[in-house]
Computed example of a mutant assay.
Amino acid sequence: MVTIKDVAAHAGVAFKTVSRVVNNDPTVKPKNREKVLKAIEELGYRPNRAAQMTRRKKSGVIGFIADELLRVPYTFDLIRGAQDLAWKHNKELMVLNVNVNKYSVEGAVNHLFEHRVEGIIYAAMYHREVSLPLQFKEVPTVLANCYDSYGRYPSIVPDEKEAAREITASLIGKGYKRIAFLNLNENIIAAKLRKEGVEQAFSNANINLDNLLVESVIFGEENNERSVTRSRVENIIKNFKPDAILCGQDPMAVEVYFVVQALGLKVGKDIGVGSFDDWDIIPTLLQPELTTMALPHYEMGQWAFNCLLEERTEPVKETARFTLNSRQSF
């Protein structure tokens, strides 16, 4: 096994110089850093993390508790955003998935404590309020895609209202004046804020709200929701006669495409369709490709990691902007 002394000899530098490079010390001279990194690559040296943790006061480990995050593909970007910065700053990201039925939050926190984590990122599958056990107060904690009921921790959530206003304004700007908004489950935060954003866009454009139909097409409790999108879309198109349909999420837009085509209409020509989430490959598989608001998961993961890195503890509640990915559906 290659040791740190082997690297030092190969690079022609002192043992301590190699140690400083491995620990990402910014004071190392660029020339020496380049020698060490070249030697590490040529020899295939791998730092012993366990030994580093023993020697250092800090573990270099950041915990990431994923609350049901692994159920939905597009939420992986929350983890990826934090992971990219972890690599950059020579930190280890320890990811634990939890859910109410199998893996408890308390058990995850205790496991992270055993690994002497420097901080914890707690991320939820969707924008919601959370109530965390008091154990989290023992270590710096940041929330992503959720916020604390008591405002005890820094948090970042998507700017749902602004996203809805922006995509609705884009529809209006392209000449669509009678819009049906198929909303998410009315019990969740995103649905309420997006409704406000859509209505604000209509108000800003001085369009009468009689030309706006807002209807939730997803019902039920968490983990037991059902969609009535297909049955409602046909009725809405025939009776409300919208020139555009805005969908609460991309899978809903897929169902709208099916209904529109079954009625002999063409998306992007006879009726515009917009959506939210930018869910994996769905928008680009549809024809025409779907215009949708991309959730800022990657950016939220990075913000949360930076918050821990910079040791910010003030319980701020930040919002992250969506990105409008314009394609051909309107």
Rank of each mutant, 00 (worst) to 15 (best):
Asn110Cys: 01
Ser149Trp: 10
Met94Asp: 11
Lys177Tyr: 06
Glu118Thr: 05
Glu114Lys: 14
Leu112Asn: 09
Val98Asn: 09
Asn185Trp: 03
Glu162Gln: 12
Ala82Met: 01
Asn185Val: 01
Glu114Ala: 09
Ile62Cys: 05
Glu160Thr: 08
Lys174Thr: 03
Arg55Phe: 00
Arg152Tyr: 13
Asn90Trp: 02
Gly173Arg: 00
Gly151Val: 09
Ala169Arg: 06
Ser131Leu: 15
Glu138Gln: 14
Phe113Glu: 15
Val157Asn: 02
His127Ala: 08
Gly151Asp: 08
Arg194Tyr: 04
His115Ile: 00
Val100Leu: 06
Ile156Lys: 07
Val105Cys: 06
Tyr147Ala: 03
Lys192Phe: 10
Arg71Ile: 13
Leu93Asp: 09
Ala124Pro: 12
Leu182Asp: 05
Gln135Cys: 05
Met94Leu: 14
Arg55Tyr: 01
Lys174Leu: 04
His127Ile: 02
Tyr126Gln: 10
Val61Thr: 11
Tyr176Leu: 02
Gly173Pro: 01
Val98Lys: 10
Thr75His: 13
Gly60Phe: 10
Glu68Lys: 09
Ile156Cys: 12
Pro158Ala: 11
Ile167Met: 03
Asn185His: 05
Leu182Pro: 01
Leu143Glu: 12
Asn110Trp: 05
Asn99Leu: 06
Asp148Tyr: 10
Val105Glu: 15
Arg116Cys: 03
Leu96His: 11
Cys146Phe: 10
His127Pro: 01
His89Cys: 01
Ala86Thr: 07
Phe113Thr: 09
Gly151Glu: 08
Ala124His: 06
Pro140Tyr: 00
Ala124Glu: 04
Asp77Ser: 07
Pro73Gln: 04
Gly151Ile: 12
Arg194Asn: 13
Arg56Asn: 15
Glu166Ser: 08
Thr168Pro: 06
Glu160Ala: 12
Gly63Tyr: 14
Leu78Met: 11
Arg128Gln: 14
Met125Ala: 11
Ile65Gly: 06
Pro73Gly: 03
Leu69Met: 13
Ile188Ala: 09
Gly81Ala: 00
Ile120Gln: 09
Val142Trp: 00
Val100Ser: 15
Lys137Asn: 12
Trp87Leu: 03
Lys91Ala: 02
Ser104Ala: 07
Glu118Leu: 05
Asn183Tyr: 05
Tyr74Arg: 04
Ile172Met: 00
Gly63His: 12
Asn185Lys: 03
Val109Leu: 14
Val142Ser: 08
Ala144Asp: 04
Ser59Pro: 08
Lys137Arg: 14
Lys192Gly: 13
Tyr153Phe: 15
Glu92His: 11
Glu129Trp: 00
